[in-house]
Amino acid sequence: MFLLLFVVAFALTVNSHSYHRNKYITSANFFSGTIYSWKSDVVGYFKLKERNNALAEENRRLRSLLAEARDTVPFIALDSTVFPGPYQYYPAKVINNSYSKTKNYLTLRKRIGDPIEADMGVISSKGIVGIVNKVSNKYASVQSILNTNSKINAKLKNSFHFGTLVWDTQEPNEAKLIDIPRQAPVVVGDTIVTDGKSTIFPRGILIGTIKDFNLSNNQDYYDVTVQLFNDMTNLHHVYIIENVEKEAIQEIEDVEVKAPLQNRPTESIEETNQENDAE
């Protein structure tokens, strides 16, 4: 009895530690979603003022962007049937948040009917939050960037050098950016944004500023400490990002990966790929 149940629990644990997907036990189910929803409805009232301020601030920022865009681009009546871009945004509300463990997750209440799927990005008005892990009818569980499984493609804002954003479990408002090449112009205070090379986040979503950096052990890469813009301990309204072109991009990438392996004489393809990467 003990062994059986212990093995089951252990298997679930191992399953939860491996990145990817077929997880059975998540908070995106009806029961936990409902209870967290109740709690969020009650607790939410006490934070209404603060949240209104945050939303007003975001409105102000977007309005000033809009004003800038109007100044530079002549305003043309857009054909509303034209699709505005590959990214669609859906609003959601954080009903549960954790940040003190090594693998943190959030639970969101989404609108019923929004086509949310696993592997979509989640951002707030200030910066990135995480990646959708599991979805049910009304709720979604999100793997926070404060999770040792999270690896997010990020770059310096003022150059094209990119690295991987990971979390070292130390502080809930700091993350590590690793694998930034040595020749990159790293300066304390510079902004880090998402790279847009993965299909999850668009390019240029804010992440944080460089707080500190030093060369890693093998002296070829920088380890950068990033101060996050988002206060991960205080999240409320977030947006889930759908990349409409995701499948098309992944199809192409799968072909790229498989093709050179199948017939070897296509080395020239690999070379051109490398050249492209170098650029």
């Binding site: 009895m1 003990f2 149940l5 212990f6 089951v8 629990a9 252990f10 298997a11 679930l12 644990t13 191992v14 399953n15 939860s16 530690h17 997880k23 036990i25 998540t26 908070s27 189910n29 029961f31 936990s32 209870i35 967290y36 549960n96 954790s98 463990k101 693998k103 997750y105 639970t107 892990n133 569980s141």
Partner: peptide
């Protein structure tokens, strides 16, 4: 068995796989 259920309930709410279930069992 009840310990397993107890741990699993807490696990479901905290997205932690079977961590609490294992410890409770």
């Amino acid at each position: 068995f009840l310990g397993f259920l107890l741990g699993l309930s807490v696990d479901i709410f905290s997205d932690s796989g079977g961590v609490h279930a294992a410890a409770c069992v």
